[in-house]
Amino acid sequence: MLEILQYEFMRNALIAGMLASIACGIIGTYVVVKRIVFISGGISHSAFGGIGLGYLLGIDPIIGALFFTLASALGMGIVSKRTDLREDTVIGIIWATGMALGVIFLGLGPGYPPDPWGYLFGNILTVPRSDIIVMLILDAVIILIIFSLYKDFLALCFDEEFATVVGVPTERLYLVLLSLIALTVVVLIRVVGVILVIALLTIPAAISGQLTYSLKKMMIFSILLSAIFTTCGLWLSYVLDLASGAMIILVCFTVFLLSSLSKSLRSQRSYVHA
């Protein structure tokens, strides 16, 4: 294990994994408890449009993705709060349109279209230093906002209507939460890609939810679990010479399966004893 650390790309990959774990541990917890997995899927897939636009305009695709995810998050949030349109229909539309735009933008670019594989399924081994800095800044923004508005977000997720009644600006807060999901997606794209992001947002938080009944602990457990999963997945992909993003997700899934099985066995046993 240690000898792989002598490569700079491996060290960068591990750092990227850690930074991704912080974002997805905190925000993934909200995605799971507030049951906004589908809207998060819409946000992450729309990122592909931004990646394509980045290529076309010759700017960092990650920055393009940041604009697209923020725009789609705010767009879907406003549509779901202020109009009578069905929320899940709108999410499905933005989901696919973002992907379609990405493909068109890539095709419009000069020369042969670049290989989108790394952005779709992640390629943590090619994370450049500049992206690590972007990830670091986004993590800092996420931590700062959640730390200062923790109690308001808890009320928003637990009982939005009551929070509104006692004077919490729930609509604005919900848009902030969706924007934080957008930032998290951008942090995770390099690691697992736009298609697999949703797994890293939900699985560690879902496992943590089986271990604790405290939101704060759920976040901390999710961060630790994601860090372990990304590191294990990275190591397995190195050893087996398989795609890193997909390997990380398979590690997540395996642990989720084991955790769920052991939880249902435990509750069955306590049922027999009772």
Partner: peptide, 23 residues
């Protein structure tokens, strides 16, 4: 949602959100 990770204490304090400022 019965699985929602929140304690009695947290829920009761939510009633005070109108009295406590943001941040």
């Amino acid at each position: 949602d019965r699985d929602f990770p929140v304690s009695v204490w947290d829920v009761v304090l939510m009633g005070r959100l109108g009295h406590t400022g943001r941040f």
